[in-house]
């Protein structure tokens, strides 16, 4: 029975590798966070349950849960938690760990969009909103993409009229000046974070 298989050290791992993960053990299982979450009925595990699963060493189940990806950052749980757990932050930290470990649920829309946003932003150092919207619309195939784009047509036209959306952005789009410097910064930041969180 190898440790890798049973992951009895999952709580320790969360404490080390997840931002503010050291607060997980402070949870007293009262349930206020779960009852207060506006998304509560729509996800697999409420925060209270996730925290208990972490303690129980259920690594795969926790990291492949869709719950962290459903968090809207409304902060209701943090405001009400009698133990002042930074629940929202822990949720985001868990989502990041899940992503890095390749355990985030496949096809989870928030996870997918997060990746798209990141790729879009880091490519040229600027968010290209036109390309970002289009990649979101067309992520489920061409036919669905056309339907999505048609449905959003009036919004797009409005944005264009107001000068908030430039159709020319489709041809490359605006960029920052020092792209290679920006990429070097990102690389360094990632190295630092990876070393700190033992993620490499």
């Amino acid at each position: 029975m190898s440790e890798m298989k049973y992951h009895n050290n999952f709580l320790k791992e969360v404490e080390e590798r997840v931002e503010e993960g050291h607060m997980v053990k402070m949870c007293m299982q009262c349930g206020v966070c779960s009852g207060s979450c506006p998304f509560g009925p729509h996800w697999a595990h409420p925060p209270q349950e996730l925290f208990m699963m972490i303690r129980a060493g259920k690594r795969e189940e926790v990291l492949s849960s869709d719950s962290m990806w459903m968090c809207t950052s409304c902060y209701q749980c943090i405001v009400r938690c009698p133990r002042k757990l930074p629940i929202t932050h822990i949720m985001h930290g868990l989502a990041y760990l899940a992503k890095r470990e390749g355990l985030a649920p496949k096809g989870q829309p928030t996870a997918e969009f997060g990746q798209m946003f990141w790729d879009n932003l880091t490519k040229d150092g600027r968010v290209n909103e036109l390309k970002l919207s289009l990649s979101l619309y067309f992520k489920d195939g061409f036919g669905q993409g056309v339907k999505n784009a048609m449905a959003m047509q009036s919004v797009g036209m409005g944005l264009m009229k107001a000068g908030r959306l430039n159709p020319m952005e489709i041809l490359g789009g605006h960029k920052i000046k020092d792209k290679s410097g920006f990429h070097a910064m990102l690389k360094k930041a990632r190295e630092i974070e990876d070393a700190r969180r033992k993620l490499a």
């Binding site: 009262c30 349930g31 206020v32 779960s34 009852g35 207060s36 509560g40 409420p46 209270q48 009400r80 009698p82």
Partner: peptide, 20 residues
Amino acid sequence: SKVAKIVQDEKTGDVVLHGV
């Protein structure tokens, strides 16, 4: 369970407790 929220039904006066 620590109850998350209470709502009182204005018509019946009954109170509904929400939580997990």
